[in-house]
Design a protein around this nucleic acid. Structure first.
Length: 271
DNA sequence: AGAGGTACCTGGCAGC
DNA sequence: TGCTGCCAGGTACCTC
């Protein structure tokens, strides 16, 4: 489900309900996510006040004076703020109960998500320490893409989805950004010019910003902190559009598997 | 070192 | 209607 815009939408949605509130308790119905939720987290969070809800790539960071909860939504995860008394439905694995009678409820049918605890700087955590630049920060440039791609033969789409290269770009937005930049997804990363990488960096920024503005993309079940879907799906150019006319030239959009992921492109506009 | 494949898990859908 | 196989927004880890 969630790529950077969906995680950012979630962050913005939950922040006002969580920041400044004390955590009363943590209810865990299913401990076995991608990694088991630690007893340490369950013991450490109660009594703490959330001072900040941050994001790094697709990771959400709930910061307290005692440490930081690192949360990843995996493929199917969502978070919402609801009344703490609401009975839990299936796959609603964790409640972080707040002092205002509400709770942050984590649902994740496929359990590819994660909830970890660190007492150190989250940036030093092994999950985050290798991440590339934030795509909406000034550290993300066409030049850095160009420099890291020299000599690499893998498909540029797989390169763009590598979190060590840039954080938070998943399958939907990699497809969309490559379309906007006019680059064929299967082109070898090392055979794209500096100028075209500059266009690609701009396209990544543009598509992520536009999606955040629309509250993210809901394909099936993404909801924000208020339980509402995102509307960027209506603005997708190529993702999931096999056979539809290209918005630029009218040629049918093609689909191909690249790196085990469905990829969509216009055979005329992208090369 | 880089590239590619596998595994984790559940649910929805197409096709028979 | 019910079964089977395939697909899905991610990413760590394995092998070649």
């Amino acid at each position: 489900m969630p790529e950077l815009p969906e995680v950012e939408t979630t962050r913005r949605g939950i922040s006002p309900h969580v920041i400044g509130h004390r955590i009363e308790r943590v209810i865990i119905r299913q401990r076995n996510l991608r990694w088991p939720i630690s007893r340490r987290l369950q013991q450490s969070l109660p009594g703490q006040t959330v001072c900040c809800v941050g994001r790094r790539g697709k990771y959400l960071l709930l910061t307290t004076a005692a440490g930081t909860a690192i949360l990843h939504l995996g493929m199917s995860g969502s978070l919402r703020i609801i009344d703490a008394a609401t009975p839990a439905a299936t796959h609603e694995h964790v409640d972080i109960v707040l002092d205002n009678g509400r709770c942050l409820r984590f649902k994740d049918p496929r359990r590819f998500g994660a909830l970890l605890w660190t007492t150190r700087s989250p940036a030093a955590h092994w999950l985050l320490s290798e991440l590339g630049p934030e795509p909406l920060s000034t550290g993300f440039t066409g030049e850095c893409l160009y420099a890291q791609s020299r000599g690499r033969r893998l498909a540029i789409k797989s390169f763009l989805m590598d979190s060590k290269i840039v954080a938070g770009v998943g399958n939907i937005y990699a497809n969309e950004a490559l379309f906007l930049a006019g680059i064929h997804p299967q082109r070898a990363a090392g055979r794209v010019s500096r100028d075209r990488y500059e266009r690609l960096a701009q396209a990544v920024r543009a598509v992520l910003r536009a999606s955040i503005r629309e509250g993210g993309t809901t394909l099936r079940d993404f909801i924000n902190g208020e339980g509402k879907p995102g509307y960027f799906r209506q603005l997708l150019n190529v993702y999931g559009k096999t056979g539809d006319p290209c918005p630029h030239c009218g040629q049918p959009i093609r689909e191909r598997r690249i790196g085990q992921r469905s990829s969509f492109f216009c055979p005329t506009c992208q090369h």
